Simulated scan of single mutants.
Amino acid sequence: MAAKALLKTFMRPRDADAIRADIAAIDAAEAARAQAAVEAAARRQELVIEGDVAALEAHDGRVRRLGMESEVATAKRARLVEELETARAADEQARRRALYEKGLRASRAAAKLRTEDYARLAAQIAAVLEQIESHREAIRTANAALPDGAAPVFDPEAAMHEPPRPPVPIKSRRRTFRDGPNGVVEEVWQEHEFTLDHGHNGVPRPALAEAVMLPGTSYRAVPFWPQLAK
């Protein structure tokens, strides 16, 4: 079991950050080799002039090794770039998988809220609205046949109607300019009067029973409110 776990650790794909670090190390080493190659070219000319064949041979050996190291590094870098693309794709799939799992949990939670919490609360609200409508019917019946001298029974739904606000007269001064004598522009202040309309003209608002809509928990389910005729 320990051997299998160790093998899985070595076979596990590396993450993108680790691969980028390896690519950066290769690039840094390649930059150093490039600089060394420039210096080696200048040094070789000196060795030729000096006539030291052994030193020239050793120098050329080091230059060839630099070339081989660069060739190996280029191939390794190409493999790392491919590995990086694979790691990026795996990271993207992991990100999408996490979002997908989150969506699945949200779907289950929403379904539970809809079929349990919403259904319970909607049924309670529908019962309240039914009672309000029953009371309103009693109020309408009483107001339709008031005893002599009795004031109309107050309908609480009247609180939904906003009383009108009267317009407010406003005076203001406006600065304008006009051509004066001799082509001189003059500043003129003019007084204006206008009426500020709040836009509230006592428009009735719908009663609660008319404004509220509580659909069922599915497309074909009977709505909680408004209730269908019995």
Rank of each mutant, 00 (worst) to 15 (best):
E39T: 11
A207R: 14
R120N: 06
P13W: 03
D60Y: 03
S70Q: 15
E193P: 00
A24N: 13
D22Q: 15
A111N: 10
T195Q: 12
R165E: 15
A90C: 08
V184T: 15
L84M: 06
Q227D: 03
A98S: 15
R205V: 09
P215K: 09
D179Q: 14
L6E: 13
Q124G: 12
T115P: 01
V53Y: 08
G183Y: 06
R178V: 02
P163G: 01
P215F: 09
D52Q: 08
R12C: 10
P164I: 00
G149T: 01
M160A: 08
A142D: 10
L80A: 04
E92R: 13
A111M: 10
F177D: 10
A111P: 00
G149M: 04
A3W: 01
L129W: 07
L113C: 08
K8W: 02
Y219Q: 12
A25C: 06
M213T: 14
Q93T: 06
Q45T: 08
D17S: 13
E187C: 00
A94F: 13
T141I: 04
P223D: 11
L113I: 01
R88W: 15
A75Y: 05
A159R: 15
F154V: 05
V184K: 15
E186L: 00
E101A: 15
E92W: 07
K4T: 08
Y100I: 08
T217H: 05
T176R: 12
F10N: 12
A111W: 12
W189H: 06
A150L: 08
R62E: 14
G149R: 10
R14I: 03
A229Q: 05
V48N: 15
A25G: 09
N182Q: 11
E210A: 07
P206Y: 04
I26R: 04
A40K: 09
E187A: 10
Y118M: 02
A34C: 02
A207N: 13
A122C: 08
A73Y: 03
A2W: 06
D155P: 07
G202S: 07
A54Q: 14
R12Y: 14
A55D: 02
R140S: 09
R97V: 05
K112Q: 10
A110M: 04
L99Q: 15
L7I: 01
E193H: 00
T195C: 10
E116D: 11
E116T: 07
I23V: 02
A209P: 03
V185S: 13
R205H: 10
G216N: 09
Q93L: 11
N143Q: 11
E71K: 12
P223C: 02
A221R: 00
I23C: 06
D179H: 11
A229S: 08
D15F: 00
A110C: 02
E210Q: 06
Q35I: 10
A207D: 14
D17V: 14
K4Q: 14
A145K: 05
V72T: 03
D60G: 03
V53K: 15
G183L: 07
A16S: 10
R97H: 11
A209Y: 04
A98R: 14
A159N: 12
Q190R: 05
T217F: 07
E83V: 05
R77D: 10
G183Q: 06
S134Q: 09
R20T: 00
A5I: 10
G61L: 12
I139H: 03
A144E: 12
